[in-house]
Structure formats: C-alpha cells, structure tokens
Design a protein around this nucleic acid. Structure first.
Lengths: 340, 340
DNA sequence: CGCTCCCATGAGAGCGCTCTCATGAGATTC
DNA sequence: GAATCTCATGAGAGCGCTCTCATGGGAGCG
C-alpha cells in the first residue's frame, strides 16, 4: 500500500536514540521519567522525540513489561435487554470516564452465551488486559471463579450469589433501598401494599424482595402480596394486572425496577386507578425515564456512576498490587416524585 | 507475589513446542491454521496445547504482526449529555455486538476536551488499534483530518461538516427524515406548523432543519416558524414556550430530537394545549423513552444499530486493505404513535 | 595523590510471536 | 536410477521495548 509511498517508517526508540546521539536505554529512561538522566540529555532526547513525532509502541512495551495498561469491561446480557435498559450504557460510560487521565484503556467485551464465555476466559488469560470488571453477572456464571483462580484482578458489579473469599465486588444496597421504598409507602399511610419482585436468581431481585419483606415485617404486617416479573416493562404490566385482580383493594406497590414500574403504571391506568391517589407506586433504579412518566416516578436512586467509579478504583489498586479489599456496598436513596 | 508460589509460568509457544516435540514454527502454523502441517503433527500440537492450557500472547503477536486486532470507538461529548442521551450507549453496544465473532476487540476512548484529544491522536498512532470509529463528532473536530492524514483507517458516524475526500462515513438520512416528519404533519391537515431545530453547528441539526424547510417549501408554504434548542429536554421546553408565544395559532410542530420533543410536550401541557388535538408533535430519533411519553411520541426512527453495524463493517474492510468506499446514508422511517 | 563510591550511560539479553529461508525426505519425471 | 519437484519442518532473525549489568569519569575521602 501507500506505506511504501510515504517512505519513512514509523520512528522507533532506536531512531530517536540515533537522532539524539544517545543509546536506546537512555531514551527509554527519558520516556519513563527515570530520575537518573542528566538534564541536557533529557532535553536532547525530548527534542528529538518532538522532531520525529515519535510515539512509543504499546505492543512492544506490554510485551516487555508484562502488562498492558488496559482493563476489560465484560458484560453478559441478552441483546434486547441491553438496549432497552440504560443501566449498562451508564456503567460503560461512567467506567470510561473514571479511566480518563489514568492512561488505562477500556476494552469492551460482550459475552452473550457460553461459547463466547469460554473464549472470553482465554482472551483475558492471554494477557491482553491487566484486570477485569464484570457487569451484570448471573448467579450461575462461572467467570468470577475462573478469573479468581487464574489470579486475574477482578471486580464484580453487584454481589455474586455465592460468596467467594477474595473476590472483590461493589454492590448497591438493594436490601436497604427496598426497605426505604416500603417504609415510604407505609409512611404515606398505605396499608394494603404489595410488591412486584424481580428474578430471584439475580441478587438484585432477591435482595430487593428481602428488603421489602423486612420493612413490612418491621411494621408488624405480612408481606404476602408478591407478584414476579423479569425486570422488563411488559412483565411489570402483567404482574400489576395480576396483583390488581388478586388484591383489588391494594393502595400501594413497590416495584423492583423502574422498567417494570412503568409497565405497572400503564396497567394501573388501564384499570382506571389513579396514581398516587388510589395506588401509590415506588420504583427502583431512577433511570432517566423515571422523570418523564405520568406521574413522574418516585423511585430509589442507584448510584450507578459511583458504582462504576468505585469498581474501577478498586480494580486499579488491585492491579497495582494491593491486596483485595473488603467488598463495598454503596448506599441508595429515595427520590420523591409524583407517584408516591 | 504469588506468581512465584504457583510455580509454573504461563506456557509459551516454546513450551508447547517442547511438549509436542516439534519446533516453535510448527506450533505457530497450527495455531494460525496453516495448511502446510501434517495431520499427525497437528493433532500432537493441539493436544499439547490442551494439556498445557496454552493461550497465545496478544502483545507478542501484535508486535510481530504489526496489527492488534482491535479498534477504537472514540466519542466526544460533554458528560451530562452522554448520560441523558441513550444514543451513545446504543452505538457502543451495537458496535460491540457487531464485533462478536470477528476476533476484533473494542477499545473505548472518551475524549472530552482538546487536551485529551491530542493524547488520543498519539494513542491511536502508537499502533494500539488498527482503526478508529468516530462517534458524535463536532464540526470543528480536527480528529478526522488527523487520522486521515496519518493513514489510519477511520469511519465517522454522521456526515462531517466539511467534506473530506477519502474519509468514509455512515450517515443517517437526516434531510429525508425531517422531510418525512414535515410531510406527515401536512398530510394530517396541519397548516400552521413550526419546528424546533437543533444546533446548527452539528450536521444532524442543520440537515434536519433543511429537510423540514424543503418539505414545507414543496408544499408551497413558508418555513419561517423556527425556534432553536440544543438537543436537551430543557431547551425543547423553552423553545416550545417561545413558539407558542410567538405563534399562538400553531397546530403542528416538528422537533429535531425526541429529548427536546419531550420538553415540548411538557410545555404544551403547561400551556393547556392537547396533543395531538390542538398541536401535533413529531420528534426525531425514536429513543426508548418515546414509547412512554403521554401521548406516545410519533417520531422518526434512527437506525442506530444498523449504523453501528455498517460503520464496523466498513472499518473492518478498510483495515483488511480494501479501498475506502463511498459514504453510506441509511434511510429513516416515520413511526406513528399518538402525538401526531 | 590514590582510593572508593556514586551515578549517568551504554551494551545486550530477553519478552513471545511470526515469517523467511534453508533443509531434507519422499514423490514424480524421463 | 538420477534429476527435479514438492512439501512438511526447523533454524533463526527480527518486531520495539524494558531492564539488568557493566563501564567509566568525577566527586569525595583519607
């Protein structure tokens, strides 16, 4: 191709060394900011670098250093869900922002099925990344175990179903958040409340149900009005319809995520129930859309940005050689809008 | 650290070669699927690989091959916008999905300001990626030019303001889409229509205004009712209020993106105008939220997924050595919901 | 004035892989 | 049966960088 036409090849360390009249080692020292270089030599090298437009080759560097200065963000999710739910998009962007200025690059890895999963394990072990961030894991996922055993620095987003000593994770206080939600309903005078729970094979789903039950029990009531959904809007709509037919008298509902809550709002509207007058609704996640529902959704805010940032920081210190610290659980808060 | 404790180092090509009783070159051939290897040797090597759990080192490979099998997705955007607008999240995820099975990795690069921009240019030139996907560029962006000149395969999402021969891009037919929107309003019998345009320094903003004007002119009317926003919901709300005060009689409005359209809906509601009875509203983008507004938003669907996929394919063929093809412009379509 | 010590610098050995080229055994040809 | 060809295989030279170790000149010491 045109590489030939341009004539000059890309400059290497040697080129710079020759231009500056020093050895390759010295140039390397200058680039890596070693203190044992005389100021004059340093200047000479830097000007040579500028003149040649030299840029270090990362592949060569990582081969020699045995590290890559990049981390992987691995997500496992069926396609449709990913696109409908802005959670992952936020995690991705927040992570990428947390990395700005660290010189560490973010590699995105999408593993949808098991085949891709095993290839992924190879990929990670091939030393292309220094560490791994795992987002949206399912409980049956073998990946955390694999990575842990392989000694690859790993941080999981959300609490893994099975506790693994030495695995670091950053969770959001799902139990506490759900408690907040239920308490809010109760504080608003609602007495015949119910919940639409998420999938119980995801810790977020299970924990939120637990928190709800705990708060209701603490108020001396029975938490026996439970319907289940799978975190999609449609399932929320359906679950709400079910609840309404089973408990026509209910006056408040905690929905385990905002997407389902939007479905619930629709079902309530279809059933002619006014929100919050007849039925108060509290969601969970505080996605962007929650501001724009009719009425705007009262919901539990998830510190997604904080979570991504914390995960990244944890991973970087782990890569830096620090021991694996305690898991971190971030607090949640209730955002009061119109629906409860 | 504990690397020492584990004893065995990670296996390399040499390890495998020794285990299989062949030379390094032969193992390399097997790994790269060269036909000039006898079946017996191939089996022996593969079983040795399995036994040792060997995984090729990517850094070494890319050093030797002068390519990295990874591409960068560069986005430039102020933080807040990124998070509010799911567009980027979709682009990211669609790109990552388009890459599944190609063996190419996605590196995410977030360049928010000029300083990061110049570092980015270095990064790309350091040969860490084989090509670059540019998302959400502003017109004043020097990056496309830089990359083009450096001979780095690049594909831009959206049409760059200034035409650059040899720069490949994938645009969405903004002019056509806006025409569709305006024609829809006119076909619905609306005669006193207006538009809320986006930033005119972004081609999407300018093109959508052009399309609107073209359709209105084609209908023999004047397109002189224009307010401007910056693609945020708040600006849409404000622009709508302005339009209402300037043209109290208007009965239809084309809003250049859904976020602003949501703001417009709110302003209309605040002004006591019924949608679509009093004022019909057509948005642009078909973001997820558009389904959930009250009433659901009639809007122009952007083929974001297609766009990302096309960009990726274009980039990969370019990296493969094919000449830079013609820019691609993807068609849009109108999605009729409740608002118009 | 001779000795040791310090520190800037250079030489050179890898890091793990690919690829060219040489080699030699077996197949093919007349 | 000798010459030619084919093709699997091996040897070895890089790819561009870091890092250890050797070197030698000048400062510091007695």
């Amino acid at each position: 191709m045109s590489e030939v036409t341009t004539g000059r090849r890309k400059p290497t360390l040697d080129t710079v060394a020759a231009e500056a009249g020093v050895s390759r080692a010295t140039v390397s020292r200058v680039i890596n900011g070693s203190p044992r270089v005389s100021p004059e030599v340093k200047d000479a090298v830097e000007s040579a670098i500028g003149r040649l437009g030299y840029v270090p080759n990362r592949a060569a560097r990582s081969l020699a250093m045995r590290r890559t200065d990049s981390i992987a963000l691995v997500m496992r999710e069926p396609d449709a869900t990913v696109l409908a739910d802005p959670y992952l998009g936020n995690i991705i962007i927040a992570t990428s922002q947390a990395l700005v200025g660290t010189g560490v690059q973010l590699v995105l890895v999408n593993a949808r099925n098991d085949a891709e999963h095993s290839r992924l394990a190879d990929y990670v072990r091939s030393g292309h990344v220094d560490g791994v961030l795992l987002a949206s894991m399912h409980d049956d996922d073998p990946l955390p175990r694999l990575l842990l055993d392989a000694g690859i620095p790993t941080v999981v987003g959300g609490r893994p179903q099975r506790h693994m000593p030495g695995l670091s994770y950053v969770d959001v206080d799902n139990v506490g958040g759900a408690q907040l939600a239920a308490e809010h309903l109760l504080a608003r005078g609602r007495r015949r409340i119910a919940t639409i729970a998420g999938p119980q094979d995801m810790t977020a789903g299970a924990d939120r149900l637990t928190g709800y039950q705990r708060a209701v029990a603490a108020a001396g009531r029975k938490a026996d009005r439970v319907a289940h959904g799978d975190f999609t809007r449609e399932s929320g709509e359906q679950a709400m319809a079910t609840l309404l037919s089973r408990h026509p008298d209910l006056d408040g509902v905690f929905v385990a995520n905002d997407l389902m809550a939007m479905g619930a709002l629709r079902a309530l509207r279809a059933a002619g129930r006014a929100v919050p007058a007849d039925v108060a609704v509290v969601g969970y996640d505080d996605i962007e859309m929650a501001r724009h529902t009719e009425p705007p959704l009262t919901t539990i805010h998830q510190p997604v940005i904080d979570q991504a940032r914390t995960m990244t920081e944890l991973l970087l210190t782990q890569i830096g050689g620090d021991p694996v610290g305690e898991p971190v659980v971030l607090p949640t808060e209730l955002v009061e809008r119109g629906s409860a």
